[in-house]
Simulated scan of single mutants.
Amino acid sequence: MKNIAIIPARGGSKRLPEKNIKLIDGFPLLAFSILYAQANSEIIDEVYVSTDDQEIKKIALQYGAKVIDRPENLSGDFEPTVSALKHVLQNIDHANVANVILLQATNPFRPENLLKETLGIYQKQNFNSLFTVSGNHKKFGKITDKKFIPYNYKIGQRSQDLEPLFYENGLLYITKAALIMNDIIIAEDAFPFETDHIFANIDIDTQEDFDYAQYLYNKHIKP
């Protein structure tokens, strides 16, 4: 049974046009996730890019990924990611696919051993899915009737004493292929793998996000 990586990369970004092919040090953003998957070839058997864009398709093929052409009805702004993953499975021999590893192009950098470590936990504990999370010690609240209501702290409490809240950082997801076919990426019993690596702070949606990613690349990755 195979493990496959799927990288969804549509072409219709509004806030940062053509973000999936913008260059960092001469590499299209999409390429970093493809290269990461290929660097884990002992784990990942095949790498697929799902796209509706011909330029993205060209780049994906150039870097050695297989491409599944995503139809227009699955490429809208509000279409969930799982529909792209399911469409890939429906267009390959998915009966031989055990697990899907979702790598998002907008989270281009990942710790080198992250996939090996997470997959080891996922397989050993026989989880249905796993996703990466990061902790946050900020003081959150909501505004009701123009009044701020603290959510995770009491007024005057030190931030370093707060119990952290956690968020999906998007670095990677591992899910049984059978769940994807049932429109599920994160199962109810999914294991939240905690990582507070600096790369977990990247999620590119704006020019500012892209500039920050470029800064971290130059500081932590580029020789």
Rank of each mutant, 00 (worst) to 15 (best):
Q123R: 11
K138N: 11
N136S: 15
N107L: 01
P150W: 04
F140L: 12
L114F: 10
Y151L: 10
K116C: 13
F109A: 01
Q125T: 12
N136R: 04
F148L: 13
Y151H: 12
I143R: 09
G120Q: 10
K154F: 05
D145R: 04
Y151S: 09
N152H: 08
S134Y: 03
F127S: 01
P150S: 04
Y122D: 01
R110Q: 05
L114Q: 08
V133K: 00
F140R: 09
G156C: 11
T118W: 00
N107D: 06
D145E: 13
S134F: 00
N128Q: 12
I155V: 15
H137R: 09
N107Q: 10
F148D: 06
F131D: 02
N107I: 02
Q157W: 09
F140I: 06
S134E: 02
I121N: 05
I149D: 12
Q157A: 12
I149M: 11
I143P: 00
G156A: 10
R110N: 03
F131E: 00
N113Y: 11
T132H: 00
P108M: 03
Q157N: 11
F148A: 11
Y153Q: 04
G135C: 04
N136H: 08
Q123G: 02
S134W: 02
Y153V: 06
I143V: 15
K154T: 10
G141P: 01
G135H: 00
L114E: 08
K116P: 07
L115K: 04
P108E: 03
N126W: 05
K146Q: 14
K147L: 12
F148Y: 15
S129I: 02
K142Y: 14
T144F: 13
N107E: 08
N136K: 02
R158W: 10
N152I: 11
L119E: 07
K124D: 13
E112P: 02
F131G: 00
I143M: 13
N128V: 09
F140K: 10
H137N: 13
L119D: 05
Q125A: 15
T118C: 07
T144L: 14
K147I: 14
N128R: 09
F131C: 03
V133A: 05
R158D: 11
R158M: 11
P108K: 05
S129H: 05
N113R: 12
I155L: 14
